[in-house]
Amino acid sequence: KEMRNAYWEIALLPNLNNQQKRAFIRSLYDDPSQSANLLAEAKKLNDAQA
């Protein structure tokens, strides 16, 4: 469930391009235990690109 939530949050971040989203989501599938960390990194990048 945590992975699914992280997937959708990443997919809906407005300032990431599709390539960036795909990279984060690929990492999510590679290591679901890192969901919270990956989401935090994606949000950080999203904010930096705002």
Rank of each mutant, 00 (worst) to 15 (best):
K1H: 15
K1A: 12
K1N: 10
E2H: 07
M3V: 13
M3T: 13
R4C: 15
N5T: 13
N5C: 10
A6H: 09
A6N: 06
Y7A: 11
Y7N: 03
W8D: 11
W8I: 15
W8A: 14
W8V: 15
W8C: 15
E9L: 13
E9S: 05
E9R: 06
I10E: 00
I10A: 00
A11T: 15
A11P: 01
L12F: 12
L13S: 04
L13H: 04
P14K: 07
N15E: 03
L16E: 00
L16V: 03
L16W: 00
N17Q: 05
N18K: 12
N18P: 13
N18F: 11
N18I: 13
N18S: 14
Q19C: 06
Q19F: 11
Q19G: 06
Q20W: 02
Q20P: 00
Q20S: 02
Q20L: 03
K21Q: 01
R22I: 15
R22L: 14
A23M: 12
A23H: 14
A23R: 10
F24T: 03
F24Q: 02
F24W: 01
I25V: 05
I25R: 02
I25W: 15
I25G: 03
R26P: 01
R26S: 15
S27D: 10
L28M: 11
L28V: 06
Y29V: 13
Y29I: 13
Y29C: 11
D30E: 12
D31F: 11
P32Q: 03
P32K: 03
P32F: 08
P32I: 05
P32G: 03
P32D: 03
S33L: 06
S33T: 09
S33W: 07
Q34H: 09
S35V: 12
S35I: 14
S35T: 07
S35N: 08
A36L: 08
A36S: 12
A36C: 11
A36M: 07
N37V: 11
N37E: 11
N37L: 11
L38W: 06
L38M: 07
L38R: 04
L39F: 03
L39Y: 03
L39G: 02
L39C: 04
L39D: 00
L39N: 01
A40N: 13
A40P: 01
A40Q: 07
E41G: 05
E41R: 09
E41A: 12
E41H: 07
A42H: 00
K43W: 05
K43V: 09
K43N: 06
K44C: 08
K44R: 13
K44V: 09
K44W: 11
L45T: 05
L45Q: 05
L45F: 03
N46H: 02
N46Q: 02
D47V: 08
D47S: 09
D47F: 07
D47R: 09
D47K: 11
A48K: 12
A48D: 07
A48R: 09
A48Q: 10
Q49L: 11
Q49T: 06
A50K: 10
A50V: 15
A50W: 05
A50C: 10
A50T: 07
